[in-house]
């Protein structure tokens, strides 16, 4: 048995008479649309999750691994001297690329979310902070801690590892989880296609037999069915991904990958493609449910 390849153009253009030979509705049709919608929704969700987790893990890993903080809580009057001493120690420490004491303005900015903008920083015993950036080799944390203890009694070195490590681990796990989900969804899609094909063949065995009886070639029959089911699956996928897309139309390609878009990108960048997608989805309108009324669950 040889099936001539079904050309994409013929699939898109279609043949209204050939379409009619496939029974119009049925249980399998609704299931195909529903499953395609659910799969597309879950795939987007899993992709979003893994991309977000990946981004988070990378950001945390990169930014926190290279930075640490020295906190100096000195008695009144000794602050500036201790900061200077600590900076001296840090400059002499191999593995430290730069060390810089935060200015009062920067400290105020850090505290502003908690205490408001009018904080009289000078009157409060706020510890001074020194931001330390490591070289790629890193420094010897234990050694530095001992030296600081000896020379600057009020200094505490915080190299962020204590809370960074579990966070990075969690984000990595989350990313792994996302990819595993995506793999599972791919496998489920494969299973769904197999089951749908089997169910469709069983449900339409009579139609196929009649078509063969009156002299239809395999290609003709396959084209009629492939077209119907491809359009149905596309319609379902549009239903599954469409609402998310309409809510956060950020990416330029008309795909719904909300987290992949950087917050810095202009928020209206994708609205054009969203309109375009809506126009396109009207072409599939026979396969889509009627438009949802305002206030549908995904718009809330």
């Amino acid at each position: 048995m040889s099936l001539a390849p079904i050309s994409l153009r013929a699939l898109v253009r279609g043949d209204s008479r050939a379409d009619r030979v496939v029974p119009p509705t049925g249980f399998t049709a609704r299931l195909t649309v529903f499953t395609a919608a659910a799969m597309a929704f879950l795939a987007v969700l899993a992709l979003a999750l893994s991309l977000a987790a990946g981004r988070l893990a990378t950001t945390w890993g990169d930014e926190l691994a290279r930075a640490s903080t020295v906190r100096i809580s000195a008695p009144e009057g000794q602050g500036a001297a201790q900061v200077e001493a600590a900076l001296r120690v840090l400059e002499q420490t191999p593995g430290v690329a730069s060390a810089r004491a935060l200015t009062n303005d920067e400290q105020r900015a850090l505290l502003e979310p908690w205490f408001g903008p009018d904080l009289p920083l000078e009157d409060l015993p706020v510890p001074r902070l020194i931001e330390v950036i490591e070289t790629s080799e890193g420094y010897d944390g234990a050694g530095l801690r001992l030296r600081l203890q000896a020379e600057v009694p009020g200094a505490v070195l915080d190299d962020h590892t204590r809370w960074r490590r579990p966070l990075v681990t969690a984000a990595t796990r989350l990313r792994l989880f996302g990819w595993v989900s995506l793999g599972l969804i791919a496998a489920a899609v494969g299973a769904m296609v197999t089951l749908a094909a089997n169910a469709a063949l069983a449900a339409n065995a009579q139609v196929i037999a009649v078509l063969r009886l009156v002299g239809a070639t395999d290609t003709y029959i396959a084209r009629a069915f492939v077209r119907r089911f491809t359009l149905r699956a596309l319609g379902g996928a549009a239903v599954g991904t469409g609402p998310r897309h309409r809510r956060r139309p950020r990416t330029g390609r008309g795909r719904a990958t909300p987290v992949a878009s950087s917050p810095a990108s202009p928020s209206g960048a994708g609205t054009g493609s969203c309109r375009c997608w809506c126009r396109r989805s009207r072409a599939l309108s026979p396969f889509l449910p009627p438009p949802a009324p305002r206030g549908a669950f995904w718009r809330i």
């Binding site: 139609v207 037999a209 009649v210 009886l213 009156v214 070639t217 395999d218």
Partner: peptide, 24 residues
């Protein structure tokens, strides 16, 4: 081939016992 069988069906008219139509 299956296509050749299909082509020959176009030269042979068959009236089936149970008729077999597309009911839709």
């Amino acid at each position: 081939t299956r296509d050749q069988v299909a082509m020959s069906r176009r030269r042979i008219g068959v009236v089936h016992q149970d008729c077999r139509f597309l009911d839709h």
